[in-house]
């Protein structure tokens, strides 16, 4: 269990409260489904995913919220975020206040311009959309992000994600998606020295 304030693992039954946010069409709900599926079906954990849905979700800020836990998820909503994955500036600005003081922000460094942040929030930038474009299709930016997310947070295992992604995409895009996932996953090694946190 965490003994240092640097460790961000949460007490409440070791539950992770995660939000994927961006604008509509970036595949954020799909991201939530993939991580949730990897955790609950291939990692045998428990997870609950809720999506923001409705007219306001179209085109504007869109998000999916995910709980991943070792035990059954009872209360099904996020209260304070452990991890915020921001794929647009608007989403970042909207949901940043929900982040815990010791939370973690993963963001698309090309799309999000950071404001002054609370000191203990850990920042992990990745130019996911640019990487996706390099791979040939910007629509897979979310998968690049998921690779990075998996490498950093370890909420789900890489193996589980590699099983969950092909389930959720059309047959002909499987390879591309796995490539994108690995691209993001590898990027973890390239990020500059930041405090190393572990998932106990």
């Amino acid at each position: 269990m965490p003994n240092s304030p640097e460790l961000w693992v949460i007490n409440l039954n070791r539950m992770f409260e995660i939000k994927f946010a961006g604008y509509g069409g970036q595949g954020l709900i799909r991201s939530g489904v993939i991580v949730g599926k990897a955790a609950s079906i291939y990692d045998n954990k428990f997870s609950t995913m809720n999506q923001s849905f409705g007219p306001e979700a179209r085109g504007g800020a869109c998000s999916s919220q995910l709980l991943v836990s070792e035990t059954k998820v009872l209360y099904p909503y996020v209260t304070k975020l452990d991890i915020l994955v921001a794929m647009s500036r608007e989403a970042y600005e909207k949901f940043e206040p929900e982040l815990k003081d010791t939370g973690m922000l993963i963001y698309d460094s090309d799309l999000v311009k950071l404001k002054k942040m609370r000191p203990k929030i850990k920042l992990y930038p990745i130019p996911a959309t640019r990487f996706a474009e390099e791979l040939g299709n910007r629509i897979i930016a979310n998968v690049v992000m998921l690779g990075f997310f998996t490498a950093i947070t370890k909420v789900v295992s890489k193996q589980a994600m590699e099983k969950a992604i092909p389930d959720s995409v059309p047959e002909r895009f499987k390879d591309l998606n796995l490539k994108a996932f690995n691209k993001g996953f590898q990027h973890e090694k390239q990020i500059p020295k930041i405090p190393k946190f572990q998932n106990s």
Binding site: S40, T48, M49, N50
Partner: peptide
Amino acid sequence: ECVGHMTEK
């Protein structure tokens, strides 16, 4: 709606 749109295993 909450249960209807809640995704779980």
